[in-house]
Simulated scan of single mutants.
Amino acid sequence: SKVQEHYAIIPTKKVPTQKELDKLTSIQKEIYYTVLKRTMAMFETDYKYDETTITVEIKKLPFISKGRTILDKGWRKLEYAASKKTDKEENTELPLVQKNEAIEADLATSEGFTAPPKSYTEGTLITAMKTCGKELENVEEKEILKATEGIGTEATRANVLETLKKQHYIEIQKNDVTVTQKGAILCQAVKNTLLSSPEMTAKWETYLKKIKKEEGTQEAFLENIQKFIDHTLASSAQVIESSDWSTRITSMNQTISQTKQTIGTCPACGQSIIDKGKFYGCSGYSNGCTFTLPKRYVGKTLSEATIKKLLKTKETSLLKGFKKKTGETFSAALIVNEEHKVMFKPYKKTDK
């Protein structure tokens, strides 16, 4: 929590013996040598080459050919794999030509099909967050986002995606990121606003630089952000109220609730009780119902069957395994009282 970025895996001063290396699995060896080569590459010479470009004009249309001649492999000597495009360029030898020289050309056309853009994965989405500034028209703002590596930091971008998943704005299906109905509504609500543009991040970064140069103040920065938030909330609420979005949001919330496993009926309001992860809660939470049931009570984990019985009859059978603070265990039954609170069933002495 005290660092924003770190270097992940690096070699230490310990040099393994061949015997130690032989004990590693194939994947462990692969990781070790990958990290080692990457570290060594930092201290190697630059990769140098000569690039030749020939432009041929046919019917006043330019056709460009490129070829490379390697002068010094540099860090690539460490067997770094080149891309297919780079390999093709390196293996292309162009003839010696003179400016304005006439040549013969053999032209051919080819047919193919365009494919739709591939869906984002979590990895490509994080890359898109880093390079989002390249779409901006303002050169200064584009350079600022390039220097700050777009939206977020290395340590926060993945967390942004996790938050979007937890809030049901996106879903991951077979490694592809898809936008949910709730996410589509959010996108429409902020469409054509600063909130949906990397320009906002660039403007904030610009002002932070002013603060650094003592040309601006933290107070003014935070005050402007507060105004921006207030304006965004007000305008978004007006857009939603003036459309059928409220109906769509209600429908969407019901769909989300239905996709979760229903445990039983809420004794407080009659709606469904669903699994919310660390506890069971009412699907009517957005309407004000706060009824919940714990998954663990006084040191004992409550099974789903126990919770279902408690919801159905408002009482469980005698349960073993509750723990006192002293560590001593005891048995008791649970009930849901008139105030819709979970508690131990009061023990009554019976006369013989």
Rank of each mutant, 00 (worst) to 15 (best):
residue 27 I to Y: 09
residue 24 L to G: 02
residue 32 Y to H: 07
residue 13 K to Q: 12
residue 13 K to H: 13
residue 21 L to Y: 06
residue 37 K to W: 04
residue 9 I to A: 09
residue 17 T to M: 02
residue 25 T to H: 07
residue 45 T to N: 13
residue 20 E to L: 04
residue 14 K to H: 12
residue 22 D to L: 12
residue 28 Q to P: 05
residue 35 V to D: 03
residue 24 L to D: 03
residue 19 K to C: 01
residue 40 M to G: 05
residue 15 V to S: 10
residue 28 Q to E: 04
residue 33 Y to A: 02
residue 35 V to L: 03
residue 21 L to P: 11
residue 37 K to S: 15
residue 31 I to G: 07
residue 16 P to F: 00
residue 34 T to A: 07
residue 10 I to L: 11
residue 11 P to G: 00
residue 14 K to P: 00
residue 23 K to V: 04
residue 12 T to P: 07
residue 16 P to C: 02
residue 29 K to T: 01
residue 19 K to I: 03
residue 16 P to N: 01
residue 44 E to N: 13
residue 14 K to T: 10
residue 14 K to A: 14
residue 21 L to W: 06
residue 32 Y to Q: 03
residue 40 M to E: 09
residue 27 I to A: 13
residue 25 T to M: 09
residue 14 K to V: 07
residue 22 D to N: 13
residue 28 Q to Y: 00
residue 44 E to M: 14
residue 42 M to I: 12
residue 41 A to V: 12
residue 16 P to D: 00
residue 38 R to C: 09
residue 12 T to F: 13
residue 13 K to L: 12
residue 11 P to F: 02
residue 43 F to Q: 15
residue 17 T to K: 00
residue 30 E to M: 02
residue 30 E to W: 01
residue 41 A to N: 05
residue 46 D to C: 05
residue 19 K to R: 04
residue 44 E to D: 15
residue 38 R to F: 07
residue 40 M to W: 03
residue 43 F to E: 15
residue 14 K to E: 04
residue 43 F to N: 15
residue 11 P to C: 00
